[in-house]
Amino acid sequence: DVEEQIRRLEEVLKKNQPVTWNGTTYTDPNEIKKVIEELRKSM
């Protein structure tokens, strides 16, 4: 579920933690925001 994935990513973003997405680890909050944007567009 895309909305659930977005929620999880936003939680990680709030905690300022790195997130691994599709085999890539993002540590930059701006990169994580881009991933969230892409997910929103795909909905």
Results as ranks from 00 to 15, higher is better:
residue 41 K to E: 11
residue 23 G to L: 01
residue 37 E to V: 07
residue 34 K to Q: 10
residue 16 N to V: 04
residue 35 V to L: 15
residue 18 P to R: 04
residue 23 G to R: 00
residue 29 P to Y: 06
residue 32 I to Y: 01
residue 11 E to H: 08
residue 17 Q to I: 14
residue 17 Q to T: 09
residue 27 T to Y: 12
residue 6 I to R: 01
residue 26 Y to H: 03
residue 33 K to L: 12
residue 37 E to Y: 04
residue 17 Q to V: 09
residue 22 N to E: 15
residue 4 E to Q: 11
residue 41 K to A: 12
residue 19 V to W: 15
residue 43 M to F: 06
residue 39 L to D: 00
residue 40 R to A: 04
residue 6 I to D: 01
residue 21 W to A: 13
residue 8 R to T: 13
residue 35 V to K: 03
residue 36 I to K: 00
residue 26 Y to K: 01
residue 14 K to V: 12
residue 16 N to W: 12
residue 3 E to A: 12
residue 28 D to S: 05
residue 19 V to M: 05
residue 8 R to W: 15
residue 17 Q to R: 05
residue 15 K to D: 07
residue 4 E to H: 09
residue 3 E to G: 11
residue 42 S to T: 14
residue 38 E to Q: 13
residue 41 K to Y: 08
residue 9 L to G: 00
residue 3 E to H: 10
residue 36 I to V: 06
residue 39 L to K: 01
residue 1 D to G: 11
residue 6 I to C: 03
residue 38 E to V: 08
residue 35 V to F: 07
residue 12 V to P: 02
residue 41 K to R: 11
residue 2 V to Q: 06
residue 14 K to E: 12
residue 7 R to G: 04
residue 17 Q to A: 11
residue 43 M to I: 13
residue 39 L to Q: 01
residue 11 E to L: 05
residue 27 T to F: 09
residue 27 T to P: 02
residue 9 L to F: 10
residue 17 Q to W: 14
residue 3 E to L: 13
residue 23 G to F: 01
residue 12 V to Q: 15
residue 10 E to K: 04
residue 32 I to Q: 00
residue 2 V to H: 07
residue 25 T to S: 04
residue 30 N to V: 14
residue 1 D to N: 14
residue 14 K to P: 04
residue 26 Y to T: 02
residue 4 E to A: 11
residue 43 M to T: 08
residue 7 R to H: 08
residue 15 K to C: 11
residue 31 E to Y: 03
residue 29 P to S: 06
residue 11 E to N: 07
residue 43 M to Y: 05
residue 14 K to L: 13
residue 21 W to L: 15
residue 31 E to K: 04
residue 13 L to V: 11
residue 2 V to E: 04
residue 4 E to Y: 08
residue 42 S to G: 09
residue 33 K to D: 04
residue 18 P to D: 14
residue 10 E to L: 08
residue 43 M to V: 12
residue 38 E to T: 10
residue 9 L to C: 02
residue 26 Y to R: 00
residue 29 P to R: 04
residue 42 S to W: 09
residue 34 K to A: 13
residue 13 L to G: 02
residue 33 K to M: 11
residue 38 E to K: 08
residue 9 L to V: 03
residue 6 I to P: 00
residue 21 W to V: 15
residue 26 Y to P: 01
residue 2 V to R: 05
residue 27 T to C: 03
residue 23 G to N: 04
residue 36 I to H: 01
residue 9 L to E: 00
residue 13 L to K: 02
residue 26 Y to C: 01
residue 15 K to Y: 12
residue 4 E to S: 09
residue 27 T to Q: 05
residue 19 V to K: 00
residue 36 I to L: 10
residue 25 T to F: 10
residue 33 K to R: 13
residue 33 K to P: 01
residue 14 K to C: 12
residue 22 N to Q: 12
residue 12 V to H: 15
residue 12 V to N: 15
residue 18 P to G: 11
residue 38 E to G: 11
residue 15 K to E: 09
residue 5 Q to S: 07
residue 19 V to C: 07
residue 24 T to C: 12
residue 41 K to H: 08
residue 6 I to T: 02
residue 16 N to E: 06
residue 29 P to C: 05
residue 23 G to H: 02
residue 28 D to R: 01
residue 3 E to C: 14
residue 18 P to A: 09
residue 20 T to N: 15
residue 24 T to D: 09
residue 9 L to W: 03
residue 1 D to E: 13
residue 8 R to I: 14
residue 20 T to K: 13
residue 40 R to V: 06
residue 15 K to P: 01
residue 23 G to D: 14
residue 29 P to H: 06
residue 12 V to K: 14
residue 18 P to F: 04
residue 1 D to P: 10
residue 12 V to I: 12
residue 37 E to F: 05
residue 10 E to S: 05
residue 17 Q to H: 06
residue 32 I to S: 01
residue 4 E to M: 10
residue 25 T to P: 02
residue 22 N to L: 10
residue 4 E to P: 03
residue 3 E to M: 14
residue 39 L to V: 03
residue 35 V to G: 01
residue 30 N to M: 14
residue 11 E to P: 01
residue 20 T to H: 15
residue 34 K to G: 07
residue 14 K to G: 08
residue 30 N to L: 13
residue 26 Y to L: 14
residue 10 E to D: 04
residue 6 I to W: 03
residue 21 W to T: 11
residue 22 N to R: 03
residue 41 K to C: 07
residue 23 G to S: 02
residue 22 N to C: 14
residue 16 N to F: 12
residue 12 V to L: 15
residue 29 P to V: 08
residue 25 T to N: 03
residue 5 Q to P: 02
residue 7 R to I: 07
residue 40 R to N: 03
residue 26 Y to D: 01
residue 2 V to P: 08
residue 27 T to L: 07
residue 27 T to I: 06
residue 36 I to E: 00
residue 27 T to D: 11
residue 42 S to F: 09
residue 16 N to D: 06
residue 13 L to N: 02
residue 35 V to C: 03
residue 21 W to K: 07
residue 38 E to F: 10
residue 6 I to N: 00
residue 24 T to Q: 13
residue 16 N to I: 02
